[in-house]
Design a protein around this nucleic acid. Structure first.
Lengths: 213, 213
DNA sequence: GGCTGTGAACTTATTCACAGCT
DNA sequence: AGCTGTGAATAAGTTCACAGCC
């Protein structure tokens, strides 16, 4: 099977959001046209993106919202409930701990911090544990993914500990490029990088067509 | 001048980070080779990315760290100090308000919330203002960018208010695709989308080469 | 001699047109 | 007749090889 552009994966997430809204609104039937409009892409793109994975619609008819939704959730790994931990329970970690949207496809099993004044506190559904329990909890609780919300300076070291302990995926909120072995999936949520890109686009409003200088 | 891939912009941010570390470490001189290694890309890519904007090195010699750093900051709009506001002072907003990294190229001028129990409180360097002062502050304080940290349900409406008030850039933390007029720069910081992509990559460790099914 | 800057080759991604089902 | 699924055409982005300059 063909190699899949990772822009496709990003778009699948969008389609899924659109479908989930449709399902909440009670819509049962849709088309590549409508999906495209609501996701802000072209109908060609929708069909091509889906075609990488299979064929989920009916020619001449369209797509059935709950069916396509289920398939996309499957593809994106939301078929299983990933087990997550939060590492770093500062304000960002705390905000994530009781973000209700997480409850959907994920199970938050623990939160860690080094700071003794935070350890033991209850945050959302979690009691904060000391960082030295990290390895044992990752193993005993079969943790899949860590949300890394520690300060920049510690991010690389903590990430390495997590990988050694057996975590397979990392959602990194620190503004550093983590160097980790292959086989570990990493996504970066880097708002400072976003701000810098924003600066560029504001300075160059016509950057899509022509460039400054 | 040529059209610039936006992947290039994302990489420029990385190069800048590498250069800033080099400068802190006192390195004055570098090469496309070294930059590439530290940024995790190829030397060709570094040179091509820079070439879109000008020529900042010396043939046979390499690049001067402070010079290239200054140029990249210029390109990414860090030459000027953007004026920011925070809209939504929940835990995420609060975490951003006293994130020290922001102080660098940005000036946080105000924070807003609807919740009367938050309004008036001091958060980091800010006193939280009521949302109905939004328009007047955006104008009087010449706000460039809003960091949008309101709940999903309000994001679109608040974004529209911000744009009408004259904000030119939006860093959107809500998991929705904002529909806004052209000319407004938007960057999305969407950790739920990141988690979904992570799920895909964990299910398909060889996604780069071959695909499942 | 060595490293940058860049046109040309190649690879990947998107757009399109239409064949294939229902 | 209508809308999906997909091979082929086009466009975009990356890699490369080497010309240009220090």
């Amino acid at each position: 099977m063909a190699k899949i552009p990772d822009a496709t994966i990003t778009r699948l997430v969008r389609y899924l959001r659109v479908l989930e809204r449709m399902e909440r609104d009670g819509d049962v039937h849709t088309s590549s046209e409508e999906l495209a409009r609501l996701a802000g892409v072209t109908a060609f793109q929708v069909r091509k993106d889906l075609a990488y994975f299979g064929s989920y619609g009916t020619r001449g008819v369209g797509y059935t919202v709950p069916v396509l939704r289920r398939e996309l959730r499957q593809i994106l790994g939301l078929g299983r409930r990933w087990r997550l931990i939060l590492v770093g329970m500062g304000r960002l970690g705390q905000a994530l701990a009781d973000y209700p949207g997480l409850a959907d496809g994920y199970e938050l099993v623990a939160g860690f911090d080094v700071d003794p004044s935070v350890v033991g506190r209850r945050v959302g559904p979690l009691e904060v544990r000391p960082l030295n329990e990290l390895e044992s909890v990752v193993q005993s609780e079969h943790v899949d993914v860590a949300l890394l919300t520690v300060p920049e300076a510690q991010a690389q070291a903590v990430a390495e500990r997590l990988v050694r302990a057996g975590v397979r995926g990392l959602l990194n909120f620190a503004p550093v490029v983590l160097k980790l072995p292959d086989g570990v999936a990493v996504e970066n949520i880097d708002f400072m990088a976003g701000l810098s890109r924003l600066g560029f686009f504001m300075l160059n409003p016509r950057w899509r067509e022509e460039m400054m200088r």
